[in-house]
Amino acid sequence: MKNFFLIFQKELRSYFNSPIAFVVITIFLIISGYFFYNIFATFSTISFQAMTNAILARQYGQLNITEMVVRPFFANISLFMLIMLPMLTMRIFSEEKKSGTIELLLTYPVKDSEVILGKFAGCMGIFTIMILLTLPCMFLIELFGEPELGVVVSGYVGLFCMGAAFISLGIFASSVTENQIVAAVVSFGFLLIFFMMGYSAGFASESIGDVLKYLSFMPHMYNSFAKGVLDTEDIMYYMLFTLFCIFLNMRSLESKRWRG
């Protein structure tokens, strides 16, 4: 447990000792702020139009700030995470392999699980800071409208679960190569495939389609967390995904010790 904290601490520190954390977080906030502004501006324009035009108002139905601002906002952020998180995770093991520091790390009396979980937690720390910094957007909505707080909370829980899954896959990709670009491309590619997997459900047979839909990230975010639904099925989905990646990661690290 002590070793876990030491590695967690070191990992967090090394993100801030290099420009990585600042750059990734800043760019992420610029993009998410820009998209937020546009969603919000569109919503207010439509609201004004609906206020003056009765026909339009009927066409739009009930204008709901939760449905039209909060939900798309979480959908957008999950997309940015898809691009940004591989940038955070690509270095985690690749860098150590490339520079050789893994040789010392693995000859210290530390369990592989402590190394992996420490690094995972360090990356989760940066990621948590990153998404919590988008909270001011929510305060703005709260200031000018009445969003459902439950949806906001469940949306953040969803982002957190999704982030854990993304990061665990990214770290695993990083543990199989010493090249950071390869790690980033592999994790981005696999994340995108998992993200979009539900698309092909329509062309497959019903049973396979169901499996594909279940394995896809998207329905586990947009149809649940982003709507304010905290379903154990979705939480389990992300937890299992994360655990499976961490398991693979442990095997990949461990294989160094027995692979002749």
């Binding site: 090394s14 000792n17 050789g100 520091t101 040789e103 010392l104 000859t107």
Partner: peptide, 13 residues
């Protein structure tokens, strides 16, 4: 206590 040949250290610490 081990000192590898390439002396791999964390340069950002």
């Amino acid at each position: 206590g081990y000192l590898p040949e390439s002396v791999p250290l964390y340069t950002d610490m």
